[in-house]
Structure formats: C-alpha cells, structure tokens
C-alpha cells in the first residue's frame, strides 16, 4: 500500500504517523533537530527558513502545550502562524471538517497542524489538500501523535545514545494513547530490542503484541533493568466505564513511585508526555527527581517540531 506521507521521490510530504516511516527519515529529523536546539540557546532565537509561509494551527480538540510548542517552533522559523480552536466554532455550527480545511486553504495556507479527536482525521485532510500544502498530525484520536513520539526519541538519544542496546518501558493507558502508539512505532523503527508495555488488561488494546512489544501487568517486573520509562497520562474519565475501580488502586499498582523506580537501571531516565497527574500516575518525587527528563522533553519538543516543519517545507 502506498504510504500517504511520502511523495514520489520518497521524501516526507506530510507527517501523519511514525508507522511506515523509513528509519533514514526518522534519523534525519532527529539530526536536524540537534541543530535547532542550538538556535534556541542563541540570543536571537530565529532563523528565516519559513519566512513568508502561512502555518495554521488547526485544533479541533483543546490543547495548550502542543499548540504552543508548535506555535513557538513556527515562529522561530519565521513563519506566520494562525491559531484556530475549531472545537468551539465552525464544527459546532455544522461545518464539515473538509469544508473548514477548504476555507483555510483558500486563505493561502502552506501547512496545517492538525489535532482532532477522531483517529485518521489527519490522513483525511492530507488526502484532500492541494499538493503544495503539508499536513502535520498533532494528535488524532487514539491513533498517532508523531511529533511527540519523535521528541521522545530525541530525548532518549540525548541521554542514552545507542538505541540498539536499550530496554524501554511504557506504562499506563496504552489503549487510549496515541502517544504510546507513536512511541512504539518509533522505538521499533530505531531498532530498540526490547519494548515493554505495562498496564492492567483493561487499558491495553487487542493483540498489542503484534506491534512489537512485550506485555507486563506487574509494574515491578516490567520495570526491571529498563533504561527508560515513559509514563502515560491517565484521564480521570477512565474511572467511569468499568476500566478501573479507583485512582487510589491505580496509583498503588501502576503509579510511578520511587520504590518502583528503584527496580529500573540506576541511570534510567523518566519521561512523561504531559500534562502530568501527580499522585495518580506519577509521584512528585519521581517527576521532579534527578532521573526525570520531563522538562527537557518539552524544550526538545520545540526543536523537533522545527525540524519537521523545515523538512516538510523543503520537500
């Protein structure tokens, strides 16, 4: 099947999912991001790569952090950025997703950054737009959040260098997590030999092993000797609908505490895509502790998003 993200020369045209991306492209994004980290440390944090380009942050679902980091990334590349929170306007008036997109495309958009509650929404938009418009998926339903996956890889590489010797654990609500899916694909593409997912059975999708992971229900066993731990956010609404009995019990068995962290390698890093629920999936002592790289993840997120935008604009 044709990969809708690549153009006929095999270059990245849209970033919709990590799935199906060649390792070369993933590494190229990470390498490019390295150079943008340096930009952020300069006094003038701007480069003119995307000058004159119009980038639309098209958010059908609320988000502060992701939208802001995309906005900063675009501005550092000298693009013009327009933020739209569609959730509250057109869609509630009955306009279809593609009508909204057509209207914005008519305003000479060069790039859409899309967040939507439905899996596959970015694919739909990418198939629909004119050839010169690029689409970046900033999270679609439970499907993918590729820039988050990439920034997590960037973070791991910063601290651990060689992917091919690592053991990485992803802990929490994998079933509903687009972040987890993107991370699993990215870790596989980069050759991580052992990827573990740790969760109760109610929070794992069917046949998750097919994605190339080992399943653990016991967090202590799952954390044994891992090099990196990625915690997932647990939405409060999971307590309804018979997925979990209580936040209290979840925290006892799947909350990331210092005691549990002791089972990982002594130099293991702790990651979280945010926003965190302290006391529900992670203890403050771990989130703010010496092994936490949660804030650097946010910083690197800007560099990675700059890298993705500049590569797309150049294809």
């Amino acid at each position: 099947m044709e990969n809708p993200q690549l153009n006929q020369h095999g270059e990245l045209r849209h970033l919709l999912s990590i799935e199906g991306l060649p390792a070369g492209i993933v590494r190229h994004i990470l390498d490019t991001a390295e150079s943008f980290v340096a930009v952020a440390e300069r006094e003038v944090k701007k480069v003119p790569l995307l000058r004159g380009k119009a980038i639309f942050n098209l958010f059908f679902e609320n988000s502060t952090r992701t939208r802001t980091t995309f906005e900063i990334a675009a501005k550092r590349l000298s693009a013009d950025v327009v933020n739209l929170n569609i959730g509250a306007s057109s869609q509630s008036k009955g306009e279809t997703l593609l009508d909204t997109v057509d209207n914005l495309a008519a305003m000479q958009a060069d790039m859409f950054i899309v967040r939507h509650g439905q899996s596959g929404a970015s694919h739909l938009i990418a198939r629909h737009v004119a050839p010169h418009i690029h689409v970046i998926n900033a999270g679609d339903g439970r499907h993918a959040h590729p820039t988050q996956g990439l920034l997590d890889m960037f973070t791991i590489r910063r601290y651990k260098q060689d992917f091919t010797r690592l053991r990485v654990a992803i802990v929490g609500d994998v079933l509903h997590s687009r972040v987890a899916r993107s991370e699993i694909h990215a870790l596989n593409v980069l050759g991580v030999p052992e990827i573990r997912v740790i969760a109760p059975k109610t929070l794992l999708p069917a046949e998750v092993e097919q994605m190339g992971v080992h399943v653990y229900h016991d967090m202590i066993k799952g954390l044994k000797d891992v090099d990196a731990v990625i915690m997932l956010r647990l939405q409060n609404e999971r307590m309804r609908g018979a997925l979990l009995p209580s936040a209290h019990e979840y925290y006892k068995y799947y909350g990331f505490t210092k005691d549990k962290l002791a089972h990982a390698k002594p130099d293991a890093i702790v990651m979280h895509p945010g926003p965190m629920n302290r006391g529900i999936e992670i203890e403050s002592g771990v989130a703010d502790g010496g092994q936490s790289v949660i804030l650097p993840q946010v910083t690197f997120g800007i560099a990675v998003r700059m890298a993705v935008m500049s590569i797309l604009a150049g294809s």
Partner: peptide, 9 residues
Amino acid sequence: GEVASRLGL
C-alpha cells in the same frame, strides 16, 4: 484486532 489497535479505532 491488530488493525484497530494500530489505527487507534
């Protein structure tokens, strides 16, 4: 199954 899990459907 595998596909819905992968696509998050």
